[in-house]
């Protein structure tokens, strides 16, 4: 009986936390910027640190994933004499599934954790209180530009991941394993559709970007402002972010491709 009560209590706590995070999200998006030019500057700065600085890890991991996919795909497809279908395999698995998911996972580790740690440290060093004391809403000044930058960056990074993966796969399958170049590209061109594949992948990436960045900024803003608290919040960002991505991916995939 007691355990049912505990379960209910933890469910209520969880619901309350989600509600708080939801209000927090709405408040930080819908606070209109007071000075347009300054908001643009802040956003550009965040786009750089969240997006541009994540490029290296995205391009390198994309290339390696593409290379591994080609190797694995080639060894199976070669048994049926249809090696050139490796182009199709590569493009579809990257665009539909791997790019959004892996990019979002990497993004949670690279950009999400740094967002949480940065905001947490700003809280610990009283910078957030300081904004409040100056009559400046920290949600508008600190949270909003970071959140918007994250949401913009992830889908773009996901596209870059796909491109890098396809080029990496091309390197392995065409240059190394000797798949015919023309067949590689034409099998890809025949089977990839803009709306079912590219657009669906982008929608996935957009959903992940909202969830991951939301978790990251919320964890930073709500963390206990001590070294231990910031450490825990950063871990939570990565763990919760990754779990949310994988669970959400299942839901989205079922909705998009479930009727095949």
């Amino acid at each position: 009986m007691k355990s049912i009560g505990l379960l209910g209590a933890s469910l209520l706590d969880w619901l309350e936390a989600v509600g708080r995070a939801g209000i927090f999200l709405v408040q930080s998006i819908f606070r209109l910027p007071v000075r347009f030019k300054e908001s643009v500057n802040l956003l550009v700065k965040q786009l750089y640190s969240v997006g541009v600085l994540s490029l290296v890890i995205i391009i390198v991991s994309g290339a390696f994933i593409g290379m591994v996919l080609s190797l694995q795909g080639y060894s199976i497809l070669a048994k049926f004499g249809s090696e050139e279908a490796v182009g199709q395999l590569l493009a579809l698995s990257l665009l539909r599934e791997l790019s959004p998911v892996v990019t979002a996972l990497l993004f949670a580790g690279r950009a999400g954790s740094s967002l949480t740690a940065e905001i947490g440290l700003m809280k610990a060093t009283e910078q957030l209180s300081s904004f409040e004391m100056m009559g400046v809403d920290p949600l508008r000044r600190v949270i909003a530009p970071r959140f918007i930058a994250g949401v913009i960056c992830l889908p773009i990074l996901s596209l870059i991941f796909s491109a890098s993966g396809i080029l990496g796969g091309h390197l392995v399958s065409v240059e190394w394993l000797g798949v015919y170049d023309g067949a590689f590209w034409s099998s890809m061109q025949q089977s990839v559709y803009f709306d079912t594949d590219i657009l669906n992948g982008l929608i996935k990436a957009l959903c992940f970007s909202v969830v991951v960045t939301w978790i990251a900024v919320y964890q930073g803003y709500e963390c206990v402002p001590t070294s231990e608290g910031i450490g825990k919040a950063t871990t939570r960002t990565v763990v919760l972010g990754s779990l949310a991505i994988l669970a959400l991916d299942f839901v989205l995939t079922a909705a998009m491709f479930g009727d095949f």
Binding site: T125, E126, Q127, S129, S130, M133, M134, G135, V136
Partner: peptide, 28 residues
């Protein structure tokens, strides 16, 4: 709050701005 100034225990300077930008911030 604009009529109040507060000196925090840690100083709480904004770490991504120079000294001048920090002081200019409330005026901007």
């Amino acid at each position: 709050r604009k009529k109040m100034g507060m000196l925090f225990q840690s100083g709480a300077l904004f770490s991504d701005m120079t000294v001048a930008e920090n002081i200019a911030f409330p005026m901007e």
